[in-house]
Structures are given as structure tokens and as C-alpha cells.
């Protein structure tokens, strides 16, 4: 019934519009004017509208920046993340300056040079000096940005493994994550998808000596200021492990291993103090992976060495878990 009503309303609206248009066209015919000709008055109105709406848009942008600032991610909780944030500030500042210069120029020109029948435009087809100038300036600015960006990228991506780097595997599947700690030897045991069976949900090769002390976990604990290398695998489709607070993201691709290394700099407890009691570090899926893509999370907890040791000791070795508990 509602559908029929909607259709009726739409038809009536269209009919009304037709009538309004016809009336306006008949009226202008009587006045012997072309209804569709752009008059000086139109140019005036539209020029002023561009000034008002254009600057209204700029105010809207500023309003958003002020009102929604508190919703944005807090400063990075990782070493490389802080550098990314710095680069972001520079780049964002730069594009905002360009935006707030070019947009007003556009809207002002539209107002200033709104046409009049009696006016004539200035014939100005090219100017080599100007053109060279506005090719060279962006080139210089972009070169600087590129160099700065590449340096930051290089630092973020090429992590060196040190003695203290903890290696943790993050394994994605529709629609959850599992973590695997590499244990005392800090070496992950080999894994193969053909070995996934029963409780061995990650397909770990238990014949590999490195595997015995691996530990599986449903949340990831990290030690503050200790580097960590995350190794990613996927069981089925592409997922993407996204840790927005650490400025970390990497796709998890079936058939290959990817990785991302970083050093957390703030504990969860510290973050709770500054961001509110319900703050948690979280890993989300950021590559479309199926119906429950929107709810695929893994909790991360950054804590002190003592807390971490306590937690890790309470986790079962894979060997105990898979082989003895049969």
C-alpha cells in the first residue's frame, strides 16, 4: 500500500513540475523573452551565490575540523608511528594551505568576473613565464615531500631484527584472528595449510623442533618499548591486519607470509588514562573478506615486562596443547 502511495505522490509531483515549467515558459513568451537565456541578472545572482556557498563550504570545512577533532585517532603509540604523524602534519598542513588559497581564488574570480552584456573579456591565451613558474613551484614542493615521505617509509618498513625482537604470528581466517607466539627460542615452527586439523587450527608442523614451545593466543600481549615483528598468514581470502593506533597495516594473503615490525611506546593502561576507561588497542580487518568483515577483531594489550611475563607463563605450549591432551 505504501508503495502505491509513493508512486502516486511521485506522479503528482512530476505533473506539478510540468505545469510550473509550462506556465513560466508561457509567461516569458508573452513578455517576448527567451526563458533560457542567461541574463546579466542571472550572472549576478550566480556569481554572488558562488561567493556565499563557496565560502560557506570553507566554513563548513573549518567547522568539521574543530567539531570532529576529538574523534580522530590519538597520537601514535609506536616509534615509527610518531614519524608518520609528523609527516602527516606537514603534508596535511601543506594541502590545507593550498586548499584554503585556491578555493577562495576560484570563488572570488567567479564573483569578480561575473559577466555583463556590455563587458568584454581580456584576450589572454598564454604566458610562458607564469606557466613555468607554476610548474616549477609544485615540482620543488613535491620533490621535498617525496624525499621526506620515502625516508619515513624506508624507516617504517625495513625493520632490523634484534635479539630483543619478539616474533608473533597473526593468522586471519573468516572471521577471526589467532596469534601464535614463537616461545623461548623466538622461532616460529613451520606451518602448512595441509596440516590444519582438529585443534591444530594454524596447521603448525609439530615435527619441527621450533614448534614445540610455540603458544597460541586469542589476544596479543606486547611489552612496552620492546620491538615486535608480526608475521601474517591467511587461511582463506585476503584479510588486512590494521592496527590504527600503532600506524600499522599489512595484508594477510593466502599462500604467502607478510610482515610488519614496530615498537609500542604506550601501555594500554597509559592510554586508558588519556583516552578514557574503555580504550583498547585493537586489530581490525581492513580488506573486504566476506559477510562478517565488519566484525573481525583481535585485542592487543601493551603492558610492562612483568605483566607480560606473567601472562605468557599462563599460556599453554603448543606441544602440551596438541600432543598430550589428546
Amino acid at each position: 500500500m505504501t508503495n502505491i502511495l509513493i508512486v502516486v505522490v511521485v506522479i503528482l509531483l512530476v505533473a506539478t513540475l510540468v505545469q510550473i515549467l509550462r506556465v513560466s515558459e508561457l509567461l516569458s513568451e508573452i513578455k517576448n523573452k527567451d526563458v533560457n537565456e542567461v541574463t546579466d541578472k542571472d550572472n549576478n545572482t550566480q556569481g554572488i551565490l558562488f561567493l556565499i556557498v563557496g565560502f560557506g563550504f570553507l566554513i563548513f570545512v573549518v567547522w568539521q575540523m574543530v567539531t570532529w577533532n576529538h574523534l580522530l585517532l590519538p597520537p601514535a603509540s609506536s616509534v615509527h608511528g610518531t614519524q608518520i604523524d609528523f609527516l602527516m602534519k606537514i603534508s596535511m598542513g601543506l594541502i590545507l594551505v593550498v586548499f584554503f588559497v585556491l578555493s577562495p581564488i576560484l570563488f572570488y574570480f567567479l564573483y569578480k568576473y561575473r559577466g555583463k552584456k556590455s563587458n568584454k573579456a581580456y584576450f589572454f591565451s598564454h604566458n610562458n613565464k607564469l606557466e613555468v613558474l607554476w610548474t616549477v613551484i609544485p615540482t620543488i614542493i613535491l620533490t621535498a615531500l617525496i624525499i621526506f615521505g620515502l625516508k619515513t617509509w624506508d624507516k617504517a618498513m625495513n625493520v632490523e631484527l634484534t635479539e630483543s625482537t619478539t616474533i608473533i604470528e597473526v593468522y586471519g581466517q573468516q572471521f577471526n584472528w589467532t596469534a601464535r607466539y614463537s616461545g623461548l627460542d623466538n622461532n616460529l615452527g613451520k606451518a602448512n595449510f595441509k596440516l590444519v586439523k582438529g585443534r591444530n587450527t594454524l596447521g603448525v608442523d609439530m615435527l619441527d623442533a621450533n614448534a614445540a614451545d610455540d603458544k597460541m593466543a586469542r589476544e596479543v600481549h606486547l611489552v612496552i618499548d620492546q620491538p615486535v615483528l608480526l608475521k601474517f598468514r591467511s587461511q582463506d581470502v585476503i584479510h588486512s591486519a590494521f592496527l590504527p593506533h600503532f600506524r600499522v597495516q599489512m595484508n594477510c594473503v593466502p599462500g604467502m607470509t607478510t610482515q610488519f615490525g614496530f615498537t609500542p611506546t604506550k601501555t594500554t593502561a597509559q592510554m586508558k588514562e588519556s583516552e578514557g576507561e574503555d580504550f583498547e588497542y585493537i586489530l581490525l580487518c581492513n580488506k573486504i573478506c566476506g559477510a562478517s568483515h565488519y566484525n573481525m577483531q583481535l585485542k592487543f594489550i601493551v603492558e610492562t615486562q612483568e605483566e607480560y611475563d606473567l601472562w605468557l607463563a599462563s599460556q599453554e605450549n603448543l606441544e602440551t596443547k596438541l600432543l598430550t591432551q589428546k
Binding site: L102, L110, Y113, A121, P138, T139, I146
Partner: peptide, 29 residues
């Protein structure tokens, strides 16, 4: 990254040229 950011240069030129076209025009809306 390098090649991508280069695209900003011809794009900027286009924008500046549009603005220069509007400058001292007799704009009909």
C-alpha cells in the same frame, strides 16, 4: 610513491590554467 606524487605536477598546472582562464573573463553562468 615517486611516480604517483609526480602526477600532482601536471594536475596543478591544469588547475592553475583553469583559474587563469576565469581571470578577467566575462563569465556567463
Amino acid at each position: 610513491t615517486f611516480t604517483t606524487l609526480l602526477i600532482a605536477i601536471p594536475s596543478a598546472v591544469k588547475v592553475f590554467n583553469y583559474l587563469a582562464t576565469l581571470w578577467r573573463g566575462n563569465i556567463r553562468f
